[in-house]
Computed example of a mutant assay.
Amino acid sequence: MKTIQNFALSAVTAAAMLGLGACAGMSAQDKNTAIGAGVGAIGGSVLTGGSAVGTVGGAAVGGVIGHEVGK
């Protein structure tokens, strides 16, 4: 059981490091678009009870809003 927990922690840490490293070369507008898409996806999922269509729709709307705010 301890081995599985250590592996899971290592996997999450590696994913977080890769995710943070991917944002290094992004412009401020690109970062705002990505943040908007993430927040929109979470909001769309919550508002529609986990519907895939709501999640994708929320991500699209959030991405557009984040892009426009970044201008």
Rank of each mutant, 00 (worst) to 15 (best):
H67E: 01
T55N: 09
T48D: 01
V56P: 03
V12Y: 07
E68V: 11
A52N: 06
G70K: 13
G57R: 07
T55G: 09
V12W: 08
A24M: 04
I42C: 04
G62P: 01
T13V: 08
Q5Y: 13
M17S: 02
G25R: 15
M26K: 09
T3S: 11
T3R: 15
A24H: 05
A37C: 06
A59V: 05
A16W: 09
G57C: 07
V56T: 09
A52C: 06
A24L: 05
L18K: 15
K31T: 01
S10A: 14
A37M: 13
C23Q: 14
L47S: 13
N32L: 08
K2G: 02
A52S: 12
G66P: 03
V46D: 00
T3L: 11
A34H: 13
H67F: 10
T33A: 15
A15I: 06
V64W: 10
A34M: 14
K71Y: 06
H67C: 01
L9S: 03
S51Q: 12
H67L: 08
V61W: 07
G36W: 08
Q5T: 11
A52I: 12
A60T: 11
T33G: 11
I42S: 03
G43N: 06
G70Y: 07
G38K: 12
A37Q: 03
K2F: 08
M1G: 05
A37H: 10
C23P: 03
G21F: 10
A14C: 04
N6R: 15
I65T: 08
G21E: 03
A22C: 01
A24Y: 05
V39P: 00
H67S: 08
K71W: 02
G38L: 11
V56Q: 06
V56N: 02
I42R: 11
L9Y: 03
A28H: 12
A22E: 00
V12A: 08
G54T: 14
V69F: 10
S27A: 08
G38R: 02
A41C: 07
G19A: 09
V64G: 05
G50N: 07
L47Y: 13
S27M: 10
I42A: 10
T33K: 15
L47F: 14
A22V: 02
E68N: 12
N6K: 15
A16V: 14
M26E: 00
N6G: 08
A37Y: 08
G38T: 09
A52K: 14
K2R: 14
I4N: 10
M1V: 06
G58I: 11
Q29Y: 05
G43S: 08
G50Q: 13
G21A: 10
A28F: 12
E68Q: 11
S45M: 15
T55A: 13
S51E: 06
A14E: 00
L9W: 04
H67K: 15
G49S: 04
K31D: 00
A14L: 08
A14R: 13
G40Q: 11
I42P: 04
G54V: 14
G63F: 02
G58Q: 12
A34G: 05
L18V: 11
M26P: 00
V69W: 09
V53D: 00
A22Q: 04
I4T: 10
A59L: 02
G63S: 07
T3N: 09
F7E: 01
A24V: 04
T3Y: 12
G21S: 07
A14D: 00
K31R: 10
G49C: 05
A8L: 09
K2V: 09
M26Q: 01
M17K: 08
G54Y: 14
S45A: 15
